[in-house]
Design a binder for these strands. Structure first.
Lengths: 198, 198
DNA sequence: CCCACGGTGTGAGCGGTGCTAACATCGAAC
DNA sequence: GTTCGATGTTAGCACCGCTCACACCGTGGG
């Protein structure tokens, strides 16, 4: 591999990274439909088929971008609250999850909207990081719950995941006060009177 | 318009319906990527551009299919429990929502996975039917909740929606006992002790 | 009764796309 | 210093969305 980016090089130097960056930009600018290997190649200033040296096919590129997205999401959530302990902290993290989706809808859709081959190791690894983070978070926020902690974690993840999708699909008018809305939804669910059950 | 399906007709008779049916089949067999106007035309036994007489573009076809999907979803939920009243009934309906997504992942993704033009009247109408149904359901299952009923409905919809997506993305091993898993998740969320809050 | 018209299907064709195969270039290991 | 493998290029296939000009035919005004 070339150690230095020799000027006007025949070889790009770090085409893989350039492709990922270009893919991210296209995803942000034109959405998932605009993400094509050829467009990526154009943006990277390279011939239309050069990316195939680094990605087996389009799906492979999308998976790589998605894996990046998972890692970013994990960081984003951690930044929202470094050590969430209470349900209120959890609501803050939930807000961050939805905000992440709203700020990068193209990326978020790439992460979830198309079926991905489960063989992409990097992708499943990055995904399970998010999963583990949510589970740990829920366990700390509800240490004394009688319900199975795994079930609760699943439910919480599903809740925020669903909120995110409904928002980016504009099934809920998202424009104003997303955090407030998310907080209200989480609060509403967590404070439902169990006594209502027969 | 031809009143009778004259045999070997130059005009199809009901090409629009045939296109919708073909689109549904393609969605089921090959997923969203396989749904092309040309493939639809082939399957309907018609020239590649004939569908353009009935659908302005691909997006328009997808929106029409999605609208069908929303109506079917509403019927599917209603069939799961004709008059849900208790949180347990609600869990049953939630299970139906997820089952619907798992049985028709292609259709479900078409309904939610791509951004849709909000100008497609039929589609937004069909979608709001589902929304109203969920709201009514939640109001009946939790008549005495102090929280805003709209917030709670949003939260419940988000919960089942998220569960559906996580399942069809196989983020949760869905194969066995989906209903049980969904019921457990809903139960876990609804029975969280509010007393845990500071 | 006939004919014009408009709704519907056809065909050719443009540019874009995923992907493959054969070839070109260059850095690095021997 | 030569060879070799990784990386990039070009040509080309089939398919795609979409447009335009044209063909067909049921229907309604004369």
């Amino acid at each position: 591999m070339p150690s230095q980016p020799s000027r006007a090089a025949y070889h790009h130097g770090d085409l893989r990274a350039a492709c990922l960056r270009a893919a991210r930009e296209l995803l942000a600018e034109e959405g998932g439909a605009g993400l094509s290997l050829r467009a990526v190649a154009r943006r990277a200033g390279v011939s239309p088929t050069a990316p195939y040296r680094h990605f087996a096919d389009r799906q492979s590129l999308v998976s790589a971008v998605a894996a990046e997205g998972y890692r970013e999401l994990a960081g984003y959530l951690a930044a929202a609250h470094p050590a969430p302990e209470t349900p209120d902290d959890l609501a803050a993290v939930a807000g961050a999850y939805v905000r992440f989706a709203l700020e990068r809808p193209g990326l978020f859709r790439a992460m979830f909207a198309e079926p991905c081959d489960p063989d992409h190791d990097e992708r499943v690894a990055a995904n399970s990081v998010v999963k583990a983070y949510v589970e740990d978070l829920v366990k700390r926020a509800f240490p004394h719950t009688g319900a199975d902690a795994g079930d609760l974690a699943t439910a919480v993840w599903a809740l925020v995941h669903g909120l995110a999708f409904l928002h980016i699909d504009s099934k809920l008018d998202a424009s104003a006060g997303v955090d407030e809305r998310v907080r209200a939804a989480v609060h509403a669910l967590l404070t439902v009177k169990a006594g209502n059950r027969p």
